[in-house]
Amino acid sequence: MPALFKTEKLPGEAAGPHPRRGLLGLLDGRRAGDRLGLAPELRLGLAVTASLAALIAGDPLALGLMLAASLLYLAAQVRPRVILAAYLALAVLAGLAAGCLWLMGFVFQALRNISLDAAVNPFLRLGLSVNLLLPLALHSRLTDLSGILNRLRLPGLIKLPLLVTIRFIPTFLNDLNQIREAVGLRFRGRGGLLFWARRPLLGWRVCFTPLVVRLIRSADELAVAAELKGLSAESDFGHRPPRLRPVDQAVAVLAALTLAGAALLEILHAAA
């Protein structure tokens, strides 16, 4: 009888643990195209400031100036292909919204009054938000967040759960992947999407029950581990004061100048 198994080549050095892929890989290493490598705090600060300014501003010129500056900010950090894809997705969404509004116009008389002139400002604000949030969404890494936590003076009451959250999101993503695979294997050959469409409650159970059980068991185990570590809301999480590099400072100055320009245009608009 021949040998049960034979191989032409066997692995040499241990190949290491299962590589992390998918969403987790994305969160772990989203660095592609991040040419400026701005401090995460600066990105967050600019997003907050610009969102506030966009809400206050009512002059299309002021909003236009901020939008133009934000486009430069975006182009300096995100690949043109990604920007194009994001704007295309936005255009599709806007198109869908316009289509829905047109259809609903047959029911709601008010919707027939929408004019392109009056819709300019809302769309300028939307564009501004996209330009500021896209670098955040593309370049924020979970590992950066531990650093941000160390630099922010947040209450321990918030810092401790945030630390746990940041630490466990990759674990949960891994768990969710395993649950998805386990469900796929167990219910293979039963009709695919049609099977779940007929049994939405079973679908809910098979997704939700393992997640909840895992969560509750992890909460108990981690609480014990945290107590043993001496971790509490009064722990020292290693505070580091923020440090801005010259490129961060330059971007901050340009942002301040843009805001000043927008404020001037807003005042002139009001005076007129």
């Binding site: 191989t7 066997l10 040499g12």
Partner: peptide, 15 residues
Amino acid sequence: AWPGGEDLFAGLSGR
């Protein structure tokens, strides 16, 4: 082989 990695095994045969 995992993407970007070496062969985990090659030419494995058996029943």
